[in-house]
Design a protein around this nucleic acid. Structure first.
Lengths: 348, 348
DNA sequence: AATTAGCACTCTTACTCTTCGAGTGCCAAA
DNA sequence: TTTGGCACTCGAAGAGTAAGAGTGCTAATT
């Protein structure tokens, strides 16, 4: 084993130990726990070298070493060995997700709950990004005078709807006329290409007064725009309070404060997804790499789940930097697998 | 002023001071801050008496006094003077709630956000209890072969719907036949009186094979049952970490742990609502009175908002026992007023 | 050149001791 | 019933100390 190889083994051992014990690891305990065929003095030299390389650091002069952000990065990129889930965990997760009755919302919520529970960290599940999907059907149904339901069927079988207000004296027949011509002209159009103008030009020959028509079209438009809204299901925030990493109240406060703005988190996920487009399946951000206040001591692992061919949503975990990356990744992976599976069945 | 009156004034002053300073209040500072026309020694006697009565207590021998749960109770029931909201607060809350676009879900979420933000505590908004409301309309619409949308219009104008699966080869005409007869027989029925049997007997003369029919009826049934599900919007949990009352991590952990089970909280609200049925508009639980783990140092104030005549939902705040009750109550009151208002407009 | 033993040095953590002061209870006088 | 006075209690805060884990460096060894 070359000297360089050993240094990497040392880094790996430091990460592993620190992750489990949450204590800065010193040369002596390193020897004890792992069987390096060298003395502690040699490890001290190696560690000094690793520190020069910026992979580990000391909290203070006379303490052991902890991995730096770059150290974790090296670990995640090159040193980590992926392991697989235990059967109990699979069963636990499967159970949680299978118990969702019907609604996609429940499904995603349950997936998030399952993920936060098995990891013991914060989980994140976002609704699928529908902006790119297209409109297969659109129906406007009269509920009662003045009130209608806009029902949209999107590609990949997603159904969205919204109650809208319409002029009181609009008759069901008139509404049907509008509905039919709107559907005809929008059929197959990607959601993000639909504008108020598209809608307005879609209904041409009609005896319905413009003012009435416009109100209906406007409401329909808002319904369409609202359909592709991203919802975020964060779960397990309170888990963070159990971690020694956040035993300082101020850290916990900052973290939970930021997490409570789920829009911010969602925005960030979209951002990093854009950046790392097409590269790895898993997007891992470590410590300072995360551009969110209060998450400096966290790592953020996200990936995507699929709804049909072109539509996907995000799923991920926010935990302490000091986490068992390999385990968490396999946990996310299984949840994602189950999610894909259940959604496929749901839509088939 | 009789001696007894003064004792109550003293209690009031102690609560007021303790709420603002979070320090046990002693006889001397009491004299300084309020102008009692007596000496500190007299107050000491009064305080000893109040302690004998179980209204205040000492954290330790040589400290000032803090209100006991019973002390807070006395304060809330008899001593508190209600004050009203500042204009800024009204505007702030109004803005937050008015910005909700259309969906009831958004409205309730925003109301909850507004409430947690203005109080600085945890807010709770529950969806209206629909169990008692009745079914005005029910339509089952074919979306595509094998998939249908069940749309329900309930009393008070609430619209609920759910995508359900139906047999693949069921034709739109057959579905319409089922839909029409179901609607006819269920029209006006309270939700909680509808059972699978009711449904089954509603469709009698038909040429549709039983097996197909039953699947549709069963799915419709689950859609109806799901309609009256209670959702809970808790917000501002992280606010509790800012309070000195929860600077002990373990308390904060227990509290947030319990709050994360929003089903538990919802269940508790339903329970206390049942108990205090018909009494006050506001239900206030203080400290140990709250039968939820981790909320021993909290108070829980709830009230109801209205959707139409007979339907109502719950809204409330969970904060530290040591809160400005009068202020929080007026804040809840205003949010509730706005909520009632917006909902009325939405349904009109 | 790489490894090792040894040793002086550093820095945190935990504990003890002390002091300070706010607050109390109670007594005797008004 | 109220008040001044006083001894007493107890927590909070600060200082000092000892223990221990870990380091870096030097000189010897392989």
């Amino acid at each position: 084993m070359s000297v360089n190889d050993r240094k990497m083994k040392v880094l790996q051992a430091i990460v592993d130990d620190y992750v489990t014990t949450n204590e800065p690891v010193g040369s002596k305990s390193l020897i004890e726990r792992h069987n390096f065929p060298v003395s502690s003095a040699t490890l001290r030299n190696d560690m000094a070298e690793l520190e020069r390389m910026g992979l580990i650091e000391k909290p203070h002069t006379s303490a052991g070493r902890i991995p730096s952000d770059r150290g974790y990065r090296e670990y995640v990129d090159s040193l980590m060995t992926l392991d697989s889930l235990s059967d109990e965990e699979r069963i636990e997760i499967s159970g949680r997700i299978d118990e969702s009755v019907g609604e996609v919302r429940d499904l995603l919520k349950n997936a998030s709950a399952a993920l936060s529970e098995t990891t013991g960290y914060v989980s994140l599940v976002m609704t699928p990004k529908l902006a790119g999907s297209s409109l297969l059907q659109l129906k406007i149904l009269m509920i009662e005078p003045g009130k209608a339901l806009v029902v949209m069927v999107l590609s990949a079988g997603v159904v969205k709807d919204k109650v809208v207000r319409i002029p009181n004296f609009l008759t069901p027949d008139q509404l049907k006329e509008i509905s039919d011509s709107v559907e005809k002209s929008l059929n197959g159009k990607p959601l993000d290409e639909i504008t108020l103008v598209t809608l307005a030009t879609s209904v041409k020959e009609t005896r319905i007064p413009d003012s009435l028509l416009n109100q209906v079209l406007y409401e329909t438009y808002t319904a369409i725009k609202q359909a592709d809204r991203l919802d975020v299901y964060l779960d397990g925030e309170h888990n963070m309070l159990k971690l020694p990493d956040f035993s300082e109240l101020s850290r916990a406060r900052d973290l939970l404060g930021t997490l409570s703005h789920d829009g911010m988190v969602a925005g960030y996920v979209n951002e990093i997804e854009k950046e790392s487009q097409g590269s790895d399946t898993y997007m891992i951000r470590i410590g300072q790499e995360i551009a969110l206040e209060g998450l400096e001591d966290c790592s953020f692992i996200t990936t995507t789940y699929k709804v049909g061919d072109s539509i996907s949503g995000n799923i991920g975990v926010i935990g302490p930097k000091r986490m068992d990356y390999s385990k968490v990744i396999s946990q996310i992976d299984f949840v994602r697998y189950k999610l894909n599976d259940v959604i496929k069945k749901l839509n088939s």
